[in-house]
Deep mutational scan, measured.
Amino acid sequence: MTSCHIAEEHIQKVAIFGGTHGNELTGVFLVKHWLENGAEIQRTGLEVKPFITNPRAVKKCTRYIDCDLNRIFDLENLGKKMSEDLPYEVRRAQEINHLFGPKDSEDSYDIIFDLHNTTSNMGCTLILEDSRNNFLIQMFHYIKTSLAPLPCYVYLIEHPSLKYATTRSIAKYPVGIEVGPQPQGVLRADILDQMRKMIKHALDFIHHFNEGKEFPPCAIEVYKIIEKVDYPRDENGEIAAIIHPNLQDQDWKPLHPGDPMFLTLDGKTIPLGGDCTVYPVFVNEAAYYEKKEAFAKTTKLTLNAKSIRCCLH
């Protein structure tokens, strides 16, 4: 018999989150649709729960009410004593943790798909938090293969000092899905179709896995975050240069030392320094102006996964 890495157990509980950011409308629209008619997301033997994560922000069509829901799922915020004085999103995070967690427990949901849009030209993107997770690498390989020839990129946010504390991190297997470009507060049919297909293929993978299909060893190309880059700023902290036209919409493309990065209003080009080629992502993302992030630098690498098969009882 072929030796293989056996994944822990079959997958039982899956959640699909929309509206973690209330103005990213593809996930909101799909989740609302699936709450009314969820036939397309159901798979035999699998509990799939669509869920609106930040209903107040969705109602106002804004990213958040008090603070970013997708950055506060750490033990400090989840452990705060519940009171009306807490920011709305912290209270909501505790409610979500109660419903789908608790985080880092045996009772937490197996998989959470968190649906997002970006204003950046990132196409279909899967966000991975753990480079050693054979199950998710296999799932992402399946999704990428199923979507081809449509490109699907994998963004690895594993980093020693950049801690995200994402909404989906309460699950055993957290999956971020990011599709763009799409303006905030807008629905685009092409973007919706791409996100819908990503979810379909992900659920198909889980179904095949649960039925005992063995997935042979595989490898995927990923883009691992190195650092986030702020806009150049003046002495008052105001933005002093904008994304250069040569960099705009060039997510995932190589940016070499000396290539144009920013452009000042008086026409001066600010190039990339250093001696390493990087791959920019979230270029000129609207939501990241407040976070002082013009783009993120990534490096390209390959992740390998062992063969996996479900432990059938």
Rank of each mutant, 00 (worst) to 15 (best):
D104A: 07
D74T: 10
G274K: 04
T277W: 04
N236W: 07
G38W: 08
A287M: 06
L69H: 06
S307P: 11
P149G: 05
E89A: 05
S131I: 06
E36A: 08
G22I: 08
E214I: 11
D230T: 14
T299V: 15
A39P: 07
L150R: 11
I111Q: 02
K268C: 15
W34R: 01
G212V: 00
K60V: 10
I143V: 09
I226E: 10
G18Y: 03
E158F: 01
H10A: 06
I41F: 02
E47Y: 12
K197G: 11
K144A: 13
S3L: 14
D114K: 04
V186Y: 02
K224F: 03
L30R: 02
P245S: 05
N97E: 11
H201K: 05
A57H: 05
P102H: 13
T118F: 03
G19P: 01
R63Q: 14
L187D: 00
I112K: 01
V90H: 14
T26D: 00
A148P: 03
T2C: 14
V278W: 08
F29I: 11
Q138E: 01
F215E: 01
A305L: 02
D230K: 07
F135Q: 01
N284L: 03
K197F: 09
E40K: 03
P260R: 01
D68P: 05
D110S: 05
K172T: 11
I199F: 02
T302Q: 10
N54Q: 04
I65T: 14
D104P: 12
E89V: 04
H313M: 05
I270A: 04
L25S: 14
G123H: 07
T118I: 07
I226Q: 08
H207E: 11
K197D: 12
P183N: 08
G38V: 08
P271N: 12
G180L: 01
K292V: 15
K200W: 08
G38M: 15
L301N: 05
L147E: 00
G273D: 13
H33A: 11
P217I: 04
L30D: 01
L187K: 00
T298Q: 02
Q94K: 11
T62A: 13
C311N: 13
E158L: 01
V58G: 05
P151T: 14
V31K: 00
G258V: 06
V222Q: 00
K292R: 14
K172R: 11
